[in-house]
Write a protein that binds this DNA or RNA. Structure first.
Ligand SMILES: [Mn+2]
Ligand SMILES: [Mn+2]
Ligand SMILES: [Zn+2]
Ligand SMILES: [Zn+2]
Lengths: 156, 156
DNA sequence: CATAAAATGATAATGATTATCAATAACTTG
DNA sequence: CAAGTTATTGATAATCATTATCATTTTATG
């Protein structure tokens, strides 16, 4: 227990080995993402980080999110409400790979990982076929179902 | 042949029965969408419509696209280049149901419908399960693969 | 501590999309 | 067809998420 090694520092290596520096702002953004299981917007994240590290600027939050998305540490989504939403990529913590149900009315988002094994299996196969046919190097996929959530259906 | 019935007017009924009016602008937008197989932005569409019907305003193009997307006659996509992209929904013309490959670098989009049967079959099954479990009425889905296209890989 | 380079915060700028509103066009009814 | 009702439109301003700018501060490294 002497090293006081914090396991929530796993991304330090990832940044360093690409020549990026470890900063308080980046740490704080990752911290917020790690501790939330919601789909936060840049401003959501900015506000939460601000409590921990009031010096941070909104632009840095955007820059950090862009960087992390580029590196594949976070996923960036468009759920149709006019702002980007972010979540930590799996592999970082307990999170399972999952996809989304998106309400067209209230823009609520539901994570699901039912049928995920089958989906991913088919995706793998499809990826392989598409990569060859279109000479396209696939690195990720997006699957979302759209519709009307239970709450919104009640209100009509 | 006396009726001079134009088959590219199939959407008139769809609009009328919902109380919307048939206008030259809406006709022109649908016309452009029908004749293009690209993924056009609102401004792309505006410019093309402008040739046919110079009186149209950009706002009307946006309004029309919003309406048509709402009605399910066109699909609206976000391919990551900062503007929405539109395409006519299938059922309107020869188009087959398809999904997309999106290049993370140049934002090129490739339509594919290989493996579509299997994908759609699994999607149907998944939709059924998810609808029940989450009490969510699914109306559509989105599947995209991301990666680097052949051209972009050559240039590196 | 000195140095070089990366990162930051404050702020202005960008740019796609929306809201506003008076004028016009589409449908309805007689 | 004409008048009346209402949806739609074009022009334009406003919104607002995201980016660019740039002088200043941090980080990493020795
Ligand atoms: Mn999620
Ligand atoms: Mn397409
Ligand atoms: Zn809802
Ligand atoms: Zn490319």
């Amino acid at each position: 227990m002497t090293g006081s090694y914090r396991e929530d520092m796993w991304w330090h290596g990832r940044l360093r080995c690409r020549g990026y520096r470890i900063t308080a702002g980046r740490d704080a953004v990752l911290d917020v993402l790690t501790k939330s299981d919601a789909h936060l917007s840049a401003e959501d994240i900015y506000m939460r980080v601000h409590r921990i590290y009031p010096g941070i600027g909104l632009a840095s939050v955007y820059r950090t999110l862009e960087l992390l998305a580029q590196m594949g540490l976070v996923y960036k989504f468009d759920f149709g409400d006019g702002r980007a939403r972010y979540e930590l990529a799996e592999g970082s913590k307990k999170d399972q790979h999952h996809h989304h149900l998106v309400c067209n009315n209230c823009h609520k988002v539901i994570d699901y990982n039912d049928f995920i094994e089958e989906e991913v299996e088919l995706l793998k196969k499809t990826e392989k076929g598409l990569s060859r046919k279109y000479d396209f190097q696939i690195t990720s996929h997006l699957i979302q179902f759209y519709g009307i959530c239970a709450d919104c259906r009640k209100q009509e």
